[in-house]
Design a protein around this nucleic acid. Structure first.
Lengths: 220, 220
DNA sequence: TTTCATCTTCAGTTAAACTTCAGGTAATGA
DNA sequence: TCATTACCTGAAGTTTAACTGAAGATGAAA
């Protein structure tokens, strides 16, 4: 979950922003001044920081400067200071965006999204179901955070199941997709792969639908 | 060198921007309308696109939409349209910044830098993975600070792996990229290069994913 | 031309992955 | 309940992909 730090001394604005962002699905932590923000930054990891410039104890510039010494966490300045010099000063400290008050909440949200999107463009894609996590690019699979070694066929089967959670994949469909031929004659080899896969992942989510195929589903 | 595409129908503004960005050290290509911009995007790779919204043939929205279908190239809208709906529409298409005319050149520059900075967080002056460090420009490789002499093919393979740490590079993909032909018939020569590379770097990070390819990953 | 490093080919080996098999088990429907 | 069918399973057998060391080919430099 994306974790955002807000530093803003005015209570009303701080609350407004917190509510707005939380209702948009972000996890928000807020600080009433720059010193507090900096301490929070040092004790936790944030995906994004929104800083007011004019705050007691430490202003936004100073916070940004400190943060940038050790971290690349994206920073947005939110401020009543409209003049160009302050904007330039901010960007030169390495901030990512500068939004002047009064601002539109919709646009603030969009700008936040734009930055988050850009960061997460570099993150590896992953597919999850309960304690199973599969990384298509690295061919890695984690069960409850633990690495599991799968063979290619096992990986591919699990991948297909994870792409269609809850949906039954027919035997013929699976074989068609992974072996590239239409199933004919004996297809017991599929059972064997399923067996081995089940044993390795050791969680009871691969369910048999007799006469049809297999699906990924939790029992309760 | 950072390559920027500018799409702007007004000649004066286009020239002004081109000069400004070139004098700041960017490589600039410009287009006089959306259609031209889209074609340029399809024939070359840009690090950033600056699009005017109101242009003949294809407007900025349409260009952005097309680009986003296949590419994550950062996009900045530069426009006289100040209203909120257009800004929101832009961000929802996946653009990275929205700058309203009239704009300050200094601030435009800073916003461009902010985006480039965020993307090129891993500026390719040097690539590292654990005790491996590779310098693309000088074709040098260090392992734990010690110089290692690699042949060209070995270097190229390691380079590709370092650019995609953790990601499996398929055999065909590697051969396609380094030899420029589609793999067919006997491709055992790849194994040989991998073998020699492994022996030289003498760290256990090049892992085989049987039936797929190779990846760079630490074992623990 | 000779030399040398590099790249590619080759063939034997190894180890992993995949498939087959056969006996057992569970679900299904008459 | 019983018969049938489909699926499960462990073990054995087969195939295939990758590894390896050595030898041959290539091409640039001396």
């Amino acid at each position: 979950m994306t974790h955002i730090l807000i530093a803003e001394d005015e209570f009303d604005i701080r609350e407004l922003l917190t509510e707005l962002l939380e209702s948009s699905g972000y996890h928000v932590t807020s600080a009433a001044n720059g010193m507090e923000a900096l301490k929070l930054h040092q004790s936790a990891t944030f995906d994004l920081m929104i800083l007011d410039i004019m705050m007691p104890y430490l202003d936004g510039f100073e916070v940004a400067q400190q943060v940038r010494k050790t971290s690349q966490t994206p920073i947005i300045f939110l401020t009543a200071l409209q003049d160009e010099d302050n904007q330039v000063k901010g960007f030169d400290l390495g901030i990512d965006d500068y939004i002047a008050k009064p601002f539109s909440l919709r646009i603030l949200l969009r700008r936040i999204e734009a930055i988050i999107r850009r960061i997460q463009a570099n993150a590896e894609e992953q597919l999850s179901f309960r304690e199973i996590t599969l990384f298509p690019a690295s061919y890695n699979v984690l069960i409850s955070g633990k690495d599991i070694i799968l063979t290619l066929k096992e990986f591919q089967i699990l991948h297909l199941l994870l792409e269609n959670p809850g949906r039954v994949l027919e035997r013929e469909q699976l074989i068609q997709q992974l072996w590239g031929f239409d199933a004919f004659g004996d297809t017991r080899f599929l059972d064997t792969h399923i067996k081995n896969l089940r044993k390795k992942i050791n969680v009871p989510y691969i369910q048999t639908v007799k006469g049809v195929g297999y699906k990924l589903e939790a029992t309760n």
